[in-house]
Design a protein around this nucleic acid. Sequence first.
DNA 1: TTTT
DNA 2: TTTT
Lengths: 172, 172, 172, 172
Amino acid sequence: MLNRVILIGRLTKDPEMRYTPAGVAVTQFTLAVDRPFTSGGQGEREADFIPIVTWRQLAETCANYLRKGRLTAVEGRIQVRNYENNEGKRVYVTEVIADNVRFLESGNRDSGGSREEGSSGFSGGQGGNQGGYGGGSQGGGSRSGGSQKNDNRDPFSDDGRPIDISEDDLPF
Amino acid sequence: MLNRVILIGRLTKDPEMRYTPAGVAVTQFTLAVDRPFTSGGQGEREADFIPIVTWRQLAETCANYLRKGRLTAVEGRIQVRNYENNEGKRVYVTEVIADNVRFLESGNRDSGGSREEGSSGFSGGQGGNQGGYGGGSQGGGSRSGGSQKNDNRDPFSDDGRPIDISEDDLPF
Amino acid sequence: MLNRVILIGRLTKDPEMRYTPAGVAVTQFTLAVDRPFTSGGQGEREADFIPIVTWRQLAETCANYLRKGRLTAVEGRIQVRNYENNEGKRVYVTEVIADNVRFLESGNRDSGGSREEGSSGFSGGQGGNQGGYGGGSQGGGSRSGGSQKNDNRDPFSDDGRPIDISEDDLPF
Amino acid sequence: MLNRVILIGRLTKDPEMRYTPAGVAVTQFTLAVDRPFTSGGQGEREADFIPIVTWRQLAETCANYLRKGRLTAVEGRIQVRNYENNEGKRVYVTEVIADNVRFLESGNRDSGGSREEGSSGFSGGQGGNQGGYGGGSQGGGSRSGGSQKNDNRDPFSDDGRPIDISEDDLPF
DNA sequence: TTTT
DNA sequence: TTTT
């Protein structure tokens, strides 16, 4: 009926982009979101590590501009998939399917030489001291593809089986 | 950068639908949302009365299915318009531009004879024991029009001035 | 940094309440949330089944007033726990820790005789034709306990190990 | 029933803190939130200017650490106040009462010498490459005061009338 | 101007 | 009255 999630956190690693057999871009990353309280006796702050999935144009933008450690806002919905693993046991996977991603930090902090930034490919434009735009489906006509009928499978399941999406299944 | 509102409340009156000169449907209603606490000494609960605006297909669905008193969930963004009134003073208007509306109560409570239901026209389908659907842009390809470039004017300003929206301004 | 979830859906079963060894009430239920689109060829609508956890006073209210099938709004945060299962494999559990629950349907639909309503115990007050209140921490001083330092364990792990929460760990 | 707002934007000015006669801190600022689309012909991006109000401890933290231009996340609820102005006309004021504020940018960008930063006093700790914390009532026991019974008056109405809050009205 |  |  209604399913809305908003998160702000940092990428635990660089995002990973793949393509489905039908050529649809899908990017996955994990957001570390600090909990709003400290636990245990010595006040260490814990975090939740929440897997994010984006599709199509937004996936490509995320792959291009997001990097490990970047502060990022994500808007989307919770999705629970389940599949049978190789021992015949049903496994549940919970992910946030994002339809709006905001880059709260740009890539050009000081210099571009940071070895942690990896093969960035980031080249300003929406960086600098302005919060960058990662697309998003709130606005007008952009079909962001965050909530498509094919987003219920695991694009990262390297289990040998091909992903059986035909062109007909795709919403464009 | 990010602007997300989620409300659950009850309509204070039946919704009002109009059309812009260009033929775009726009519906307005007010949601009474009880505050999460009681105030004053005798524990009376107050409410906020929040104006909602919907556009296009969603506007028509809301006009058809929503009625005074109905419990309703709204998702959207806050918008602040301002205009100069007839005394030359700037007036600020804050509204929630909805892109997703959920009908949490159907029209067919017991009988259809309730005099408070007005000229309902509602006839089940999404009522009953299922929360109804009011459209919404979260899902796939529906361009809900909740966030269009023309939603910054007051479709209800009956001040004599014609609404100057040309066809070119409209996002479809 | 920021972690906010809002869901509207229906309970898949009656809620289950337990107490931790320290006497803290904790209630678990699953919300079926219809997806905003249809999938497959024949347009069947799928749902996500999202586990919800509530603590303390809110847990007791939920156990008392929620029942299978009821339309319910939940506000909270995503939490990802992980533990090692009996085969030494790390298992990840994702839940929504609710700090605000709204009962969008009361128990007294027509008669009280519905066999599906179970041993309800619900007796109006916040029911009827008003959306009921399930507590919630937005408002004033109520310490809802939805986000406590002990909410990172599985209160339903019936794995023989006692839950090792000492009174000192509890936030009250 | 449910009233939740999440915003990310930039302060249009330094925040302003006052105290009620009863000594309660209240801070006001305006967030400029870019719209998710461009309007007009030449693609200029507009913004909504949304007034934010915070109370008590959160008010003091905001006054200390927020400055004009800073990227900031705000969580809260929409509140609509109304009062009669000096011409006897009823005026409606819509604000977001924040109960959680996240500082997405610290004050120590490069040097501390920026004249626009004002008399900051902010000196890292939660700045740098970590998103800072502005309190927030999501977590455990902190009574943030964002949603108190006295938040329905305008702490900034310099209209000569004293604010009539007695100590008894205050929630602490 | 307000809903239940 | 507005931020970047």
